[in-house]
Simulated assay, not measured.
Amino acid sequence: MKEEKKKYALVTGGSRGIGRAICVQLAKDLDYPILINYNSNSEAAQETLKMVEAAGGTGELIQFNVVDEEQVKSVLGAWHEKNKNAVIEVLVNNAGITKDGLFMWMTKKDWSSVIDTSLNGFYNVTNTLIQNLLVNKYGRIINMVSVSGLKGTPGQTNYSAAKGALIGATKALAQEVAKRKVTVNAVAPGFIKTEMTEDLNEQELKKMIPANRFGTAQEVAHVVSFLASDKSGYITGEVININGGIYS
C-alpha cells in the first residue's frame, strides 16, 4: 500500500502584509502545514510563524529569493530531499515589490526589479513545483496580482506590466493543467491597508472607492483560502477582484 503523501502549502513573500494574512488564514481553514517563504526579513517571518501556530496551525520558514532561479531550485530541491514523502499541493505566488515613479524617469533597474520579482518569481517557483502537482493529479496555484494589472495605474507602469503579464500567464497555465485537477487563479486586490500602502493618503483616495474605505489583508486572505480549498475545483483561469468596487 502506498504511503499517503504529506501535503503542504507554500506562500512566497509570506512574512508581512497580505502574505502574512494568507499564511494565518490557511492555517485556520485548511489542514496544511504552511511553508512561509521570505527573502531577508527573518524577524518578520518568525512573527508570521508564531501567528500561524497561535491560529492552531503548523509551519516552517523557507528562505529564498524568488528572483534567483538557482536558489529557488536548490532550496526547494533540498526541502524535497529532506521531506521525501511530501508534496507542496498549494502554491500562493505572493512575493512582489513596487518601485513607483513616472515612466519617463524610470530607471532600467526599477523596471527590471519589479518585473523580476512578480513575473519571473512566478516562473521560478511555479516551474520548479509544477511537475509534482501534475504527478499528484491535484493542486492549487494562486497568483497575487493587482487592480494595477487590470486597469493600469499611473506611476506604476512597471508594476502594472508585471501584474498584467501574470494575469495572462494565469489564464494560459490554467488551461494547460486543468485535466490534472490543478487549478490556477489570480486574486487582484485594490487598495488594502498594509505596510505597502501606509504612505498613501487614505482620506483622499477612499473618495474614489465606492465602498469608501481601504480593504483589509484578512479580506484578501479569505478569498485565497477558498481558492486553495477543494471547494473551488471548478474555478480556474479566473481573476477575482477585491477592490471595493473601484474597478471591475
Rank of each mutant, 00 (worst) to 15 (best):
R16N: 10
T194L: 07
D230I: 05
A162N: 06
K28L: 12
D199Q: 15
G56P: 01
G152T: 05
S112M: 15
G77I: 03
D230K: 09
V220M: 10
S232G: 10
K109G: 14
I130F: 06
G57S: 09
Q203D: 14
V92A: 04
V67C: 11
G139Y: 01
Q25K: 12
G190V: 08
D100N: 12
F226L: 13
K207Y: 08
L150R: 11
G190T: 09
Y32D: 07
I97M: 06
A178Y: 10
I192L: 11
A188I: 09
D110V: 02
K231I: 13
G13Q: 01
N241T: 12
G96F: 03
A95R: 00
Q131H: 13
L173V: 05
K179E: 15
G57W: 01
L26Q: 00
L173W: 08
N41P: 08
V223H: 04
S118N: 15
T117M: 09
Q203G: 14
A217K: 05
E202G: 09
L173H: 02
G245L: 13
N83A: 09
G56K: 08
S160A: 15
V182H: 01
V220Q: 02
V114G: 04
Q175T: 10
A27Q: 01
M196G: 03
G57M: 08
V220Y: 05
N127G: 13
I62L: 12
L227A: 05
R213I: 08
D31F: 11
Y38N: 04
K151N: 14
T126Q: 04
L10R: 09
N83W: 03
D100K: 04
L166E: 03
V24P: 01
E176Y: 02
K7T: 14
S118T: 11
V145A: 11
K5R: 14
F226W: 11
N143W: 00
N124E: 07
K5G: 07
E89S: 08
E81H: 13
Y234W: 11
A165F: 03
Q63C: 12
H222Q: 13
M144N: 07
Q156K: 07
N94P: 06
V135C: 10
N41E: 10
A221V: 04
G96N: 07
Q131E: 14
M144P: 01
G17V: 02
A228G: 04
